[in-house]
Design a protein around this nucleic acid. Structure first.
Length: 455
RNA sequence: GGCGACGUAGCCAAGAGGACUAAGGCGGGGGUCUGCAAAACCCUUAUCGGCGGUUCGAAUCCGCCCGUCGCCUCCA
């Protein structure tokens, strides 16, 4: 298996050492509803995790929530509630939505406000080692002390210092130094520290939680591309300065960002589709299919039409995965498809190619059915491999019509009788009207079948 | 200004020196099946942004140009 590593810029072999594979993904800052970009990232790492497990790795997966930061504080002040309340609300919403998207739970979801002692201890060591200094109640990381700062994002210290946009604080030694600890301003939540009351900086929390939950070297550290700089660059600097162990991650894995028309989807730009909105209009499988039909490292442009197209494509897979009447012919061997699927996924999780294999397999199943082959093994493989991508292939709208099922059955039965009497005009009318209501009828050799769809 | 991606059919998207007379999906066209449909199946729908170069051979490597985007500031 080969996986692309942002640090080296190339695909490297990932081998199963037999030990637990440690995987850390940067999660969200819960100050508002999550958007599809967050879902994309979550689904990318969910698929990576599922595939690794499918390949026999024992995976330990940790994802954090940044539950204290400027935006959470602002929101809390605006609503007149505590920061903890804001964070908790959106964390629960996120977890609920991820469950609906069939994203498997991480083994742990640490949060900085619950890791303050560990964070303080790390900052203390960095200060003691000369990697950090306190100034006016803040503590900054001394970027100059590290010789390889910029190695992840491929930037030079000189370049960074001259960039006007880097925040210039009078108390900083150099503009590119970044905060480990932020002194509390009036009215802000704070924790006591040797440098005064305050709260952890953004980057230190991930260093602390990664170290605390997984150890000095994680196998796979992930997040969106936008986290490469400064977040992950700073994390590397802190963690490696603290432990003296390099590398702090064997693989840095970053997913491409979801674009919204011309620019990326982001909370600060306000051009977003929330996970909720997407789930209200499309099935979880279709949303996953939309994301996975492009490679995880490429940017992906959101499009209403694209999502709808995937919903239709999904229908092909769903139908192929439906149980078939027992057949007497030879069995359709799914092994070649399985191997092609593995080859695709082994190459840096090439899900578009893997999906191509799934569609090929679906076609073979349909063809096999017409030829009277035993497609059960192939059907099992299709469901199995789709499951690795987190696709259920269930007709998810079925549940919505449970109550009206007997009535629909009755109408279908009446129509069958009309057809038997060659009263086609009336029969067609029933079919057309049901279609308008989101019920599609199909006359097959085994009788009339119906299925519901989103109207 | 610095760093980095990307540009493949009407649309989405794999492929990264020879098995490509370029996967897969959506859409379009034609057909089989059907009372008619639907679904399914079959056939069909591209020479890879432009120009130059390297090579026996390039969508795949190099250079230049054009275009799009991301990061450099909170961000998945």
């Amino acid at each position: 298996m080969r996986v692309f590593d942002t640090l080296t810029g190339e695909k490297k072999p990932l081998v199963d050492s037999g030990a637990e594979l440690k995987m850390y993904a940067c999660g969200i800052t819960p100050y508002d509803a999550s958007h599809l970009g967050h879902a994309l990232s979550a689904i990318v790492f969910d698929v990576i995790r599922r595939y690794l497990e499918f390949r026999g790795f024992r995976v330990r997966y940790v994802q954090n929530f940044t539950d204290i930061d400027d935006k959470i504080i602002q929101r809390a002040q605006r609503e007149g509630v505590s920061t903890g309340e804001i964070a908790e609300r959106y964390i629960q919403q996120y977890l609920q939505e991820m469950e609906e998207l069939n994203v498997r739970r991480a083994h742990a979801y640490p949060r900085p406000t619950q890791e303050i002692p560990r964070i303080l201890q790390i900052i203390q060591v960095l200060v003691d080692k000369g990697y950090a200094y306190s100034a006016d109640g803040d503590v900054y990381f001394r970027v100059e002390r590290t010789e390889d700062y910029g190695k992840l994002s491929h930037r030079s210290q000189e370049g960074l210092d001259t960039v006007a946009r880097v925040e210039r604080t009078s108390s900083k030694e150099r503009p590119m130094d970044f905060a480990l600890w932020k002194g509390a301003k009036p009215g802000e939540p704070f924790w006591d520290s040797p440098w005064g009351p305050g709260r952890p900086g953004w980057h230190i929390e991930c260093s602390a939680m990664c170290l605390g939950y997984l150890g000095e070297t994680v196998d796979l550290h992930g997040g969106g591309r936008d986290l490469i700089f400064p977040h992950h660059e700073n994390e590397i600097a802190q963690t490696e300065a603290y432990t003296g162990v390099k590398p702090s991650a064997s693989f840095w894995v970053h997913n491409g960002l979801l674009q919204m028309g011309e620019e990326k989807m982001s909370k600060s730009l306000g051009n977003l589709i929330t996970v909720r909105q997407a789930l209200d209009s499309y099935s979880a499988d279709a949303i996953r299919l939309f994301f996975l039909s492009s490679h995880y490292r490429s940017p992906l442009a959101y499009s209403e039409g694209g999502l709808a197209a995937q919903e239709r494509a999904l229908e092909r897979l769903r139908r192929a995965a439906e149980p078939a009447p027992a057949a007497t012919g030879a069995a359709l061997d799914p092994l070649p498809f399985r191997e092609r699927f593995l080859t695709a996924m082994d190459d840096d999780f090439n899900t578009p190619q893997a999906l191509g294999v799934l569609f090929d397999l679906a076609r073979e199943i349909n063809r096999g059915r017409e030829e009277g082959l035993d497609v059960e093994p192939a059907r099992g493989a299709l469901l199995d491999l789709a499951g690795v991508l987190g696709l259920t292939l269930h007709g998810e709208v079925e549940a919505r019509v449970t109550a009206s099922r007997p009535l629909i059955d009755l109408l279908v039965q009446v129509r069958e009788e009309l057809r038997a009497a060659r009263q086609f005009a009336l029969g067609d009318r029933i079919r057309d009207r049901l279609k308008e209501l989101g019920i599609d009828l199909e006359d097959t050799p085994e009788g009339t079948k119906w299925r519901s769809r989103v109207p």
